[in-house]
Nucleic acid binder design. Structure first.
Lengths: 117, 117
DNA sequence: ACAATAACTCACCCGAAAGTGAGCAACAAA
DNA sequence: TTTGTTGCTCACTTTCGGGTGAGTTATTGT
């Protein structure tokens, strides 16, 4: 899902601390891009197609939506199935188990945010 | 902790979906900056001073460390107490309850990452 | 006299991410 | 025949965040 240790990011003193630290860093970078978790959440809520996701987020451009979807597929957070090959294509997205478990944590993050403003 | 809805980010259709979405977006932006959660984690583990945090993360520059610390203070995730005013100053950082609860969620994120690679 | 220390801030650069404009495929409806 | 649909990709510009170099403060150690 992401790159290993960058050069110079580790040393003798903090090798164990950094093993956790770097992994968390990488995860945050993976889930951090704008709209990405929202799109994942919407797909989990039943929105399946590109065009309906567009409607759900009118201020999100096609380009960014396309990028986020391909990132989510690459991360294994969603699956993509082609329902109809010929144009206009019909493609359905649905969340993987990995994605659903991530969303549980995202939801806790949301609750944490509500609790502490 | 962060800005409210940006103009054009909301509309009639998705007002409820976006209320969650935008909050999560904002939280992710707040916890996303490089090193921030690592620094928080190290402070929770007992590292109290600027100079010892520097040692813990040799590849992290003073400038970024200073920035992250002030962000963490602004976010209410850590507290800063001045132990000795006169130069060289002695300043201690320690995690707030808000910060500790966030770290629990970060830890789950870490476990999620280990489970799914 | 000089360097070192602790904890920063300011000004700047540069690469990555976000956002914008255009286009495309191939079929169906107006 | 033109327009619309669906699901994108490519190229470009702009914005933002990370990283670097230098400087500051006053006291203490050599």
């Amino acid at each position: 899902m992401s790159s290993p240790l960058k050069p110079g990011t580790s040393n003798a003193y903090n090798i164990t601390a950094l093993s956790l630290a770097c992994e968390v860093n990488d995860i945050l970078r993976d889930i951090g891009p704008r709209w990405k978790m929202q799109v994942l959440h919407n797909i989990a809520a039943g929105t399946k197609q590109f065009s309906s996701l567009k409607q759900a987020f009118p201020s999100l451009s096609d380009q960014i939506l396309g990028k986020r979807l391909s990132e989510l597929v690459d991360d294994g957070l969603i699956h993509k199935i082609v329902m109809q090959e010929k144009v206009p294509k019909r493609i359905h997205y649905f969340t993987s188990d990995k994605g659903l478990e991530l969303l549980k944590i995202i939801d806790e993050l949301h609750k944490w945010g509500l609790k502490w403003q």
